[in-house]
């Protein structure tokens, strides 16, 4: 997916304006003219400048507003793509309640099966990797991985 330079530049201009607006709420530091707002403002200007140049360039190019890659029209490939953020979101939402082990196992198994791994291979790999990661991070490294449902067993 590719936005036209003009569109991208316009978004950046808006973003820079928003950043500047945010900095107006920062307190000034008494007695000096460089406070918390100085750097964000310089950067907002820089981003705005880049955005303006992209707008000019985009208007000259006359490329389509949004160019979509071929794979995005293939539903299966789109699902493959969305599964990566989807699986991560699932972890964010479910891991506290379910615990690390069930969540990680579900993610590994679901992804591997969708990616056309054979179930007989995917099952033991998902189970093995989940347990190995849990053992390493929770056991050896003492990272507080969520215990969730497995709490009474661990």
């Amino acid at each position: 997916m590719r936005l036209n330079d003009a569109l991208l530049g316009a978004i950046l201009l808006g973003f820079a304006g928003w950043v500047w607006w945010m900095t107006t709420f920062f307190p000034a530091f008494p007695g000096q003219d460089y406070g918390p707002n100085l750097f964000p403002r310089i950067l907002a200007c820089g981003i705005a400048l880049c955005g303006a140049m992209l707008v000019l360039r985009g208007l000259r190019q006359r490329a389509p507003l949004v160019a979509v890659d071929g794979w995005m029209r293939d539903p299966a490939k789109l699902v493959s793509f969305l599964l990566i953020p989807g699986a991560t979101l699932f972890y964010v939402l479910a891991s506290d309640r379910l615990g690390f082990i069930p969540t990680a196992f579900a993610i590994l198994l679901a992804l591997a099966l969708w990616f056309r791994a054979r179930p007989l291979v995917a099952l033991p790999v998902a189970a093995g990797v989940t347990l190995a990661v849990h053992w390493f991070f929770s056991g050896l490294m003492r990272v507080p991985l969520p215990r969730g449902l497995m709490d009474p067993l661990l």
């Binding site: 990566i84 990680a104 990616f115 995917a122 990797v129 990661v133 991985l145």
Partner: peptide
């Protein structure tokens, strides 16, 4: 197809840590 899910899990656990 097995490597990819495993790397994603490493990424998640790594960032969490």
């Amino acid at each position: 197809n097995l490597l990819l899910p495993c790397i994603l899990l490493f990424c998640i656990v790594g960032s969490f840590a």
